[in-house]
């Protein structure tokens, strides 16, 4: 379950997850990380933005923190969504495993892959998604991409 997760697996992750730490979120409104973080917050996820360059500022009603270890202990993070180059992923995953007791999923964005980090996370019982975007998967699996002519792969006679 790394590069090719099943639709059922993705659906389960997107349904179970409540709180997402977005690593490397941008304040620039046309950057993909801003897009995704904003979208997830619009869909009801609690998004904890992480960016050392903007720590202390507000984004989507949440305070930006500088690193995973700075996340307040009362916030239980289910998923870490990584917007960093593949080569920077391993220390992020190590830090997440060390500090986030409730963590269930490591998600690496489109273009981001790190097999060493993925193995480490799986060894610690975490689910790992690589080279995907939670926004696109949410839109594909829950009907939104249906509105714009994308191949969702969903065939159903149900409403």
């Amino acid at each position: 379950m790394t590069d090719d997760p099943t639709d059922d697996c993705l659906r389960r992750i997107l349904r179970e997850t409540k709180t997402v730490a977005c690593i490397g979120v941008s304040m620039n409104t046309i950057r993909p990380s801003y897009f995704v973080a904003r979208y997830l917050s619009l869909k009801g996820y609690r998004v904890v933005p992480i960016n050392p360059g903007h720590a202390g500022k507000e984004l989507f009603g949440q305070t930006i923190v500088g690193s995973i270890r700075d996340i307040p202990k009362d916030i239980q993070i289910d998923m870490v969504d990584i917007f960093r180059r593949s080569e920077h992923v391993l220390p992020i995953v190590e830090e997440a495993i060390a500090h986030l007791a409730n963590l269930k999923t490591i998600w690496m964005q489109v273009g981001v892959r790190n097999s060493e980090a993925a193995e480490l996370a799986e060894k610690h019982g975490l689910q790992v998604i690589q080279n995907r975007c939670p926004k696109i998967e949410y839109q594909r699996l829950f009907g939104e991409l249906r509105m714009a002519g994308f191949n969702t792969g969903i065939i159903s006679s149900k409403l």
Partner: peptide
């Protein structure tokens, strides 16, 4: 959000 292509 629609005009920004942030939502479909």
């Amino acid at each position: 959000a629609l005009f920004n292509l942030q939502e479909v």
